[in-house]
Amino acid sequence: MRALAAPPSVVKSLRLPRASGLFLTSLIVAAIMVVSAIAAPILAPYNPNIVDLANVLSGPTSAHWLGTDALGRDTLSRMMFGARSSLLGPLLVVVLSTAIGILLGLIAAWRGGWLDALLARIFDLLFAFPALLLAILAVALFGKGLAAPVIAMSIAYAPFVARLVRSLVVTERTRPYVAAYRVQGFSGGWIALRRVLPNVMPTVGAQSTLNFGYVLADLAALSFIGLGVQAPTADWGAMINESRGALMSGQILPAMAPTIAVVLVVIAINIIGEEFSDRLGGQIPL
């Protein structure tokens, strides 16, 4: 019978109900990370920066569940404090870029004309600068740390959000329901802000969720190459960098713990974001 199976254009709704176990697990993982970041001072067993040279690279013990690093600092505590900078940076970038993106995208779509064309040109130019490259340039100009990269990456991601918002709003505004609002006498501003914007927000939210994962990876990479968060502040990317010596000597835990944390968060965020976009009917272009 298989030879007869046609592409499912006749019956479109033949989708299996998705197992949402994966989605729930992802939410739990994300929640654990957020809680341990916020409550790090209460939950962490040690001060993350206390050096204990008598007890370096201890491996997992009952006192240090994830062992200690090359300076004898507790890996678990550093992981929990590291979650703060590792999550806060991407959060700032996502909030900033989404806000700027929505504003510019809405203006471009609703206003149209030369303004739309001008913004499109500017976005095209910014697309030529990958986010991480712009972040590196920002560090070169303003020095190491998170502040300059966060601003640079917000600028780099804003055009992606703006372009998405623009295309969604342009599609939406040609729909007859928007025309009906106009004919009823509602003002353009009311329609744009109160009706069209809320209709496109779920898709924008899903895209921004996915962006969070990409930004987290980029900022961690920046700290990993030593241009982001600086020692002795705990940060996942920086911790991986600091533990490379230990890694070479066969002590993989201090490097692997933050590595796994990064991967887990990015996977969880991707699954959450994709679940959102799936529920919206896959409107996200990439």
Partner: peptide, 26 residues
């Protein structure tokens, strides 16, 4: 605003596509 509302009270329209002529969220 007054002109808009005034005009709206004189003439209204129903569109073709039943799937797109209502706001999906409302």
């Amino acid at each position: 605003r007054a002109e808009r509302l005034d005009r709206a009270r004189t003439v209204q329209i129903v569109f073709q596509d039943p799937y797109l002529s209502l706001d999906p969220r409302i």
